[in-house]
């Protein structure tokens, strides 16, 4: 049942032609199989429907594991250290949220933790949990719900915005003290890059098609 034409699209559960509806104009059309690197566009509005990314699972796995490693570094090492006389302050994401909490803004602190810690973790960890076993045609328990959850978290992951925030804050700090950029900052830049690369590495339709096959094999 699972037949894979070399370099022509990912395997699908059913070899019969399937239909897709454009998410922007709802035009119903047949979904063509694509060679690697190609994208399918809507016949009415021109919106991109899906892409066939080359070596998609390998890329998603590699970049999401790299992102997880960067994530550990981001939390272990401070991004900025400010020294003024005997006072020394270190900045990590959690420290920024804790400071908001202490200063009487618990809601903003919880929001900041969600946008910069929880959502990115669910996004990257979820993708790794689903994509890595799929390389061997296996779906781990709960793979469907994990995929749903990390898709829902995607718009709320705001690490790149936090990175811009650090850059703006650096300029605003000005002459407050001696400023050192730490490992945490470079790790954060790496994390932002790897998260973007991991998410762009595999198309949503491909992920679900492969997941469907893996789940179908089980009794």
């Amino acid at each position: 049942m699972k037949r894979h034409l070399p370099a022509l699209s990912w395997p699908r559960l059913d070899d019969a032609p399937i239909q897709v509806a454009c998410p922007f104009c709802d035009a119903l059309q047949e979904a063509p199989r694509l060679p690697e690197g190609d994208a399918a566009h809507c016949c009415r509005c021109g919106e991109m429907l899906y892409q066939n990314r080359p070596r998609s699972l390998a890329r998603a796995t590699a970049f999401s594991s790299a992102a997880l490693i960067f994530m550990v570094l981001v939390h272990l090492f401070p991004s900025i250290t400010v020294t003024a006389g005997s006072v020394r302050r270190e900045l990590t994401i959690l420290e920024a949220a804790a400071a908001m909490y202490r200063e009487g803004n618990p809601l903003v602190a919880v929001g900041a933790v969600f946008f910069t810690v929880i959502a990115p973790l669910v996004l990257v960890g979820g993708l790794l949990y689903v994509a890595a076993p799929l390389r061997f045609g296996i779906a781990l328990p709960g793979a469907k719900s994990v995929t749903r959850w990390f898709q829902l978290c995607e718009p709320w992951s705001m690490l790149e915005v936090f990175l811009l925030g650090i850059l703006v804050a650096l300029l605003k700090l000005g002459s407050v003290g001696e400023i050192h950029l730490g490992v945490g900052l470079w790790a954060l830049a790496g994390l932002v890059f790897c998260t973007a690369a991991a998410m762009a590495g595999i198309d949503r339709l491909e992920l679900w098609d492969r997941l469907e096959i893996a789940l179908h094999k089980k009794p």
Binding site: I80, A109, F162, A169
Partner: peptide, 14 residues
């Protein structure tokens, strides 16, 4: 959201 993060960072550092 960048301004919210800038304030949080400044509060933590300064």
């Amino acid at each position: 959201m960048v301004d919210v993060f800038v304030v949080a960072i400044l509060v933590a550092l300064v």
